[in-house]
Design a protein around this nucleic acid. Structure first.
Length: 803
RNA sequence: GCGGAUAUGGCGGAAUUGGCAGACGCGCCAGACUUAGGAUCUGGUGGGAGACCGUGCAAGUUCGAGUCUUGUUAUCCGCACCA
C-alpha cells in the first residue's frame, strides 16, 4: 500500500531542503530573466488571498523560466514609507518605524508560506537609510539638472491626511488614499519637471509590451493636443489676450471669449457697470471646491463689459468669465465658437450669444441648430478667404497660416502637470535641501547623504502646511554648504512614490555603498522583463518609474530608458458579490488557514484555478476542494505507476506529447486557469490508463516536471520518489513533437444544413471524395432530399446542404 | 457625456480564433465501500415527454456564428468642462 499524500510533511521537508539548497542559482552562464512583483507596503492587515494570487502568478512564471534555463531574478522588498504606514502607526499609537518593522515581519512570514523562489539576499526596504540615501541622491541630481524646482501655488490639499497631493493622487476630486474631498492650499512646494519628459513618456509607450488599457490611460493622462495660440487685442487697450485652440479652422466663428475667473486679467476687464458682478463671480469661484466645480454641470458666467477684437476679421467679441475654463490649462482663456463646440454652444444658448456656423455639414448650413457640429469635416463658409476649404485640411494648416499672419503661433499642449513632490508629513525621506538666506536653495552635498530622518516627539501632521520636522530646531538649524552661514533645512518630506520609482534598480545591487547600482550589474541584470501587479498604479507608480528611469538613463547611471519591458495586470480577488476585500467590510479571507488545512500547493493551484488571471474573480473557499482532490489523485496515480516499469506504448507516447503541447501552449498564453484544468484533464486520462496497464516513466516524469512550477513541494517529492537525487528544477521544460501527436484515424462530425446529424471515423489523410462518401453512408436513410452543396473542411467537418 | 472591458448551465469558467457549445472544477443525484461520512471510489448531471430549443436582446453576413457586422440593454472600469 503506497503512502497517502500528507501535505504538511511534504511541504515542511522540502521547504527546509530548499532553504539549504536554493533551486535558482546563477552559474554565470545562463541568460537572465527579471520577473518582478509590485512590492507591498507593509500595512497592519497582512495579506489576503488576493495579494497571494499576484505572487503565485509571478512565482509560477519565474519557475517556468528557471525550467527554460534562465537565471531568474525574483526579488521582494518593502515600500514602507508614506501615508498608509504612517496613518496606521498614528492609529495604533506607536512609532511608524516600529509598526512598520512588525508589519514587515508578519507579511514576510505570509509571503514565505507561498514558497516563492524569492531571493531574500536582494531584499530592499525604502525606509532603510542605505536605501533612501539613493532616493535623496536622485533628487539632488534632478535639482542639479534643473528638474527639481520650488514654486508657490495653489495645490491639491487633503484636509484629512493634512498634506499636499500630486494631481495623480486626486481621483474625482477626492484623495486617492482616504477619499476625503481635496481642497486647494497655497503652498511653496518642490516640483519635479516631469513635463519635460512628456513627449518621451508618450512616444516610448510604443516600445512596451503592456496592456493597451494602461498605455491608453497614460496617453490620456499626458494628454497631448495640437493647435494654435491666437492673440486677441483688447478693444481700447494695448493689451492682448492669448487663447489656445485645437480648432483654429473655426476662428471666423468665434463670437465670444471666455477667461477663467483666476486669469490674471479677469478683474481688470470689468467696467464700472459690471465691476460688482465680476468681483462677486471671481470671489465665488475662488471658494468653490474641486468637487463642486466638477459637479456643477450647469454653466455659469459673467460678462466683463469689455470686448476683444478677432484678429482675423476684426469682429468685436464680448469677453466673459466662466469657471468652465480652467486656469491652469493652455492660457486660461479660450475663444468660443458655439456652432462647433458643445460647451460653447451651451453657454451661448444660455446667455443668448450669436452663433455663426463656419463649417457646412453635408454641403449646407444647419437650420435651427440644436447642438454643436463638432466634427472637422465639411466645407468652410462665412470664413472670408478660407471659404471653400475643407475643414479637416484647414485644421492642420491654420496654425501655420496664423503664424505667418503674425496673429499667433502653432503650439502643442499637455494635460500632464509637473509633479508636486513635497509632503507635509513625517514618515518619508527628508528632502535634501538647505535654505540659505544668501545662496537660496542649496542641495545637501552628495557625500553627506543620507540625510537621516530625525527622531521626533510628535510625528502627527501639523495641518498648518508645515511638516512635523519644522518643529525640531536642532535638526532644522544648520549651515549653508556654500557659504557656511546659518541656514535652515527643508522640512518637507518626499511622497511615497519616491522610493518606489526606482526600487527595482536597487535589488540587483542592494548592498552597494558607492553607487545606486553598479553599471556592470545594471547592464547584466536589468531591466525588468516581466512586471506583475494590479492596474491601480497605471498613472501613478508606472508613470513615475518611467520618468525616473529616463532621467537615470540620461545621466548615465543605466543604459536603458524604459524600466518594465512587459507588464501584466492581474485581476482583483473580491469577496462575495464582487465587493472589494477590506477589513471594514469584514470580508477579508486570509490565506493562513487555507495553507494550514489544504497546504501551500493546493492554495497555489486554486488561486490560479478561480479564473483568468487578468480578470477579477469572486473568492469562494469551497472550490479549493477540487484542486486538493486533484493533487491527491495525481499523487496516488504516481504511486501506482512509479515502480511498475511500464513500457511506453503508442498510445502513451501520443498522450504524453499532447499533454506537453496543451500545458505549454496554455502557459505561454498566460492562461493559468486552463493550465490547471489541463492538469486535471490529463490526470483523469492517466488514471484511466493506470487501470488499463499503467503509465510509463517518461510520461510520469514529464507530468511531474510540468507540475513543478504550480505545486513545487509535491513535484519535488515525487521527483525524488522516482529515484532522482537532483532537484526537479534542474530539469528543462519538456518539449513535444507535433508528429508524435497525430492520430491515424479521426472523427469527423457530419452536418446537414448546419446541424450535426452524425459522425464518421476515417483515416486522417483520406481524400475529400472518400470522406464525403463515408459521411453519406453513415447518415444512410437519415439523409433525405437532394444534396445541392457539399462542404468538407479537412480534418474538421462535413456539411451537406440539402433541399 | 466620451472611451474601454464584460455578458455562456444552479455556480466558477472552457471552446485550438468561423467548424460536434458547456472541457475542467464546485454543487447536486444515484450507487459502492463503511458502525458512521462533510472521507474515498464508480456512474449521471443545459432545458424539454418529444420532433426540437439553447451562449444578454434584435437584426444581418455565411454551407455553418458564443466567435464576424450593425443596432440595443445591463454591469464594471477609466476619463470627465483639457477648448
Amino acid at each position: 500500500m503506497a503512502a497517502p499524500y500528507r501535505h504538511k510533511e511534504v511541504e515542511e521537508k522540502w521547504r527546509e531542503h530548499w532553504e539549504a539548497q536554493p533551486v535558482n542559482v546563477d552559474d554565470g552562464k545562463k541568460p537572465k530573466y527579471y520577473c518582478l512583483d509590485m512590492f507591498p507596503y507593509p500595512s497592519g492587515n497582512g495579506l489576503h488571498v488576493g495579494h497571494w494570487r499576484g505572487y503565485v502568478i509571478s512565482d509560477v512564471w519565474s519557475r517556468y523560466k528557471i525550467l527554460q534555463g534562465y537565471h531568474v531574478i525574483h526579488p521582494m522588498g518593502w515600500d514602507a514609507f508614506g501615508l498608509p504606514a504612517e496613518n496606521y502607526a498614528i492609529k495604533m499609537g506607536v512609532h511608524p518605524a516600529k509598526s512598520t518593522a512588525e508589519n514587515i515581519a508578519n507579511i514576510k512570514r505570509q509571503i514565505k508560506d507561498i514558497a516563492a523562489v524569492y531571493d531574500w539576499d536582494m531584499e530592499v526596504n525604502t525606509t532603510d537609510p542605505a536605501f533612501y540615501k539613493w532616493t535623496q541622491w536622485i533628487f539632488v541630481k534632478m535639482f542639479k539638472a534643473g528638474l527639481a524646482y520650488e514654486k508657490e501655488m495653489p495645490i491639491n490639499w487633503c484636509p484629512s491626511c493634512k498634506t499636499g497631493l500630486a494631481n495623480e493622487e486626486v481621483v474625482n476630486g477626492k484623495c486617492e488614499r482616504c477619499g476625503s474631498e481635496v481642497t486647494k492650499k497655497n503652498l511653496k512646494q518642490w516640483m519635479l519637471k516631469i513635463t519635460k519628459y512628456a513627449d518621451r513618456l508618450l512616444d516610448d509607450l510604443d516600445k512596451l509590451d503592456w496592456p493597451e488599457k494602461v498605455k491608453k490611460m497614460q496617453t490620456d493622462w499626458i494628454g497631448k493636443s495640437y493647435g494654435a495660440e491666437v492673440e486677441f487685442p483688447i478693444e481700447g487697450r494695448d493689451e492682448k489676450i492669448t487663447v489656445y485652440t485645437t480648432r483654429p479652422d473655426t476662428l471666423h466663428g468665434a463670437t465670444f471669449m471666455v477667461l477663467a475667473p483666476e486669469h490674471a486679467l479677469a478683474a481688470s476687464l470689468a467696467t464700472p457697470e459690471t465691476k460688482a458682478a465680476v468681483d462677486q463671480y471671481i470671489y465665488d469661484a475662488s471658494v468653490k471646491s474641486n468637487v463642486d466645480r466638477l459637479q456643477d454641470k450647469e454653466k455659469t458666467g459673467v460678462f466683463t463689459g469689455t470686448y476683444a477684437i478677432n484678429p482675423l476679421n476684426g469682429a468685436r467679441v464680448p469677453i466673459w468669465l466662466s469657471d468652465y475654463v480652467l486656469a491652469d490649462y493652455g492660457t486660461g482663456a479660450i475663444m468660443c465658437v458655439p456652432a462647433h463646440d458643445d460647451r460653447d454652444f451651451e453657454f451661448a444658448k444660455k446667455f443668448d450669444i450669436p452663433i455663426i456656423q463656419v463649417i457646412a455639414k453635408d454641403g449646407q448650413e444647419i437650420e435651427n441648430m440644436t447642438e454643436a457640429y463638432t466634427e472637422a469635416s465639411g466645407t468652410m463658409i462665412n470664413s472670408g478667404d478660407w471659404n471653400g476649404m475643407e475643414s479637416s485640411v484647414l485644421k492642420k494648416e491654420a496654425p501655420l497660416i496664423i503664424e505667418k499672419m503674425g496673429i499667433g503661433r502653432k503650439t502643442v499642449n499637455y494635460k500632464l502637470r509637473d509633479w508636486v513632490f513635497s509632503r507635509q508629513r513625517y514618515w518619508g525621506e527628508p528632502i535634501p535641501i538647505i535654505h540659505c538666506p544668501d545662496c537660496g536653495a542649496v542641495p545637501v552635498p552628495e557625500d553627506q547623504l543620507p540625510l537621516l530622518l530625525p527622531e521626533v516627539d510628535s510625528y502627527q501632521p501639523t495641518g498648518t502646511g508645515e511638516s512635523p520636522l519644522a518643529a525640531i530646531d536642532s535638526w532644522m538649524n544648520t549651515t549653508c554648504p556654500c557659504c557656511g552661514k546659518p541656514a535652515r533645512r527643508e522640512a518637507n518630506t518626499m511622497p511615497q512614490w519616491a522610493g518606489s520609482s526606482w526600487y527595482f534598480l536597487r535589488y540587483v545591487d542592494n548592498k552597494n555603498d558607492e553607487a545606486l547600482v553598479s553599471r556592470e550589474k545594471a547592464d547584466k541584470l536589468l531591466p525588468v522583463d516581466m512586471y506583475i501587479g494590479g492596474v491601480e498604479h497605471a498613472v501613478l507608480h508606472l508613470l513615475y518609474s518611467r520618468f525616473y528611469t529616463k532621467f537615470l538613463c540620461d545621466i548615465g547611471v543605466i543604459d536603458f530608458d524604459e524600466p518594465f519591458i512587459k507588464l501584466f495586470n492581474q485581476g482583483m480577488i473580491t469577496g462575495k458579490n464582487g465587493i472589494k476585500m477590506s477589513k471594514s467590510k469584514g470580508n477579508v479571507i486570509s490565506p493562513d488557514d487555507l495553507v494550514r488545512d489544504y497546504g501551500c500547493d493546493s492554495l497555489r493551484m486554486y488561486e490560479l484555478f478561480v479564473g483568468p488571471p487578468e480578470l477579477d474573480s469572486e473568492w469562494d473557499d469551497r472550490g479549493i476542494d477540487g484542486v486538493y482532490r486533484f493533487l491527491n489523485r495525481f499523487w496516488n496515480m504516481v504511486q501506482d505507476n512509479k515502480d511498475k516499469g511500464v513500457a511506453e506504448t503508442g498510445e502513451l507516447i501520443k498522450l504524453r506529447h499532447r499533454m506537453i503541447a496543451d500545458i505549454t501552449n496554455r502557459l505561454n498564453a498566460f492562461s493559468m486557469n486552463t493550465v490547471v484544468s489541463g492538469f486535471m484533464e490529463y490526470n483523469n486520462k492517466l488514471i484511466d490508463l493506470t487501470k488499463k496497464g499503467g503509465v510509463d516513466k517518461a510520461t510520469l516524469e514529464a507530468a511531474i516536471i510540468m507540475l513543478s512550477p504550480f505545486a513545487p513541494h509535491m513535484a519535488e517529492e515525487l521527483w525524488s520518489q522516482c529515484g532522482h537525487e537532483t532537484s526537479v528544477f534542474d530539469n528543462t521544460w519538456p518539449v513535444y513533437d507535433e508528429n508524435a501527436m497525430k492520430d491515424d484515424e479521426i472523427e469527423i462530425p457530419i452536418q446537414v444544413n448546419g446541424k450535426t446529424r452524425g459522425v464518421v471515423t476515417i483515416s486522417a489523410d483520406a481524400p475529400r471524395e472518400d470522406v464525403l462518401a463515408a459521411a453519406k453512408a453513415a447518415l444512410g436513410s437519415k439523409l433525405q432530399g437532394n444534396v445541392i452543396k457539399e462542404i468538407y473542411v479537412p480534418r474538421k467537418i462535413v456539411n451537406l446542404v440539402v433541399k
